[in-house]
Design a protein around this nucleic acid. Sequence first.
DNA 1: GTTGAGGACTTGCATTATGCAAGTGATTAA
DNA 2: TTAATCACTTGCATAATGCAAGTCCTCAAC
Lengths: 140, 140
Amino acid sequence: MATTSTSGTGCPVYLGANVFGDRWTLLILRDMMLHGRKTYGEFLESGEGISTNILASRLRSLEEEGVVWRRQDPQNRRSFHYGLTEKGMDLIPLLLEIIRWTGRHFTMNQARTDLVRRIETDRDGLVAEIRDRALSITAG
Amino acid sequence: MATTSTSGTGCPVYLGANVFGDRWTLLILRDMMLHGRKTYGEFLESGEGISTNILASRLRSLEEEGVVWRRQDPQNRRSFHYGLTEKGMDLIPLLLEIIRWTGRHFTMNQARTDLVRRIETDRDGLVAEIRDRALSITAG
DNA sequence: GTTGAGGACTTGCATTATGCAAGTGATTAA
DNA sequence: TTAATCACTTGCATAATGCAAGTCCTCAAC
């Protein structure tokens, strides 16, 4: 599945689809961006029930693509932290665009509706906020 | 407009991923949005080589989701035209966001680079332009 | 320092999705 | 009336996914 940048037609959509055109990958990125999750165990807990082997393979390919980094926790050496690289943080607008679209075409609860409104009225501010939170995880 | 969520947690990203979180689906949408393709045969010709059964199943589910419509060509009754619904056209910004991201993180040719610049400097104008072209297909 | 629990993964195997080649059925142009 | 188009199905081999269980550290408690 994971193809190199030389294969295909060189089409941007094709290249992008090879990186994040996968339901589980998008959900992992969502958990990093919006829910502050950072460890393998935390990603497993996300409501949708990703299985362990898939989670491992997706994290590995995201790391290989340079979208996320992985570091051993110095405080607890059996734990590893995952986080967004600059390339990964540059996907925040894309994720917000997904949420905006879904918000316009599906019904959802108040909290979600509020988030969609925020995306439509203050997209850049929200991107900056999410980015800052991600950076604080990098630093911690 | 508003569809109800049957599966998952109701998370917007999850819902969205179920509609377009698939490499072939994204490429079909790209062909509609950027290359003016509208028939089964034209989608098959796209460089990446989608197979016939997958193309059929993706077009069917996009139609079921209300993202694309399908009509028999009155001039040639064995041909069918596919096009973007309003819900589908509302995915144009998302597709452009994919292209923008890829443009920033992969190397690509001049034409693609120009498109990325256009996305960054005149996103709304470009969205309107693509939308108008899609509408003209609807009318034709 | 041994025991047990965490944490992050592998591995094996059944099920499902994909990819390829070939076939079908309804038009339509020759 | 025949041959070519067009939009698909169908059958089957291969690859990806999902589930349960197991492995290999590391850490905390006794």
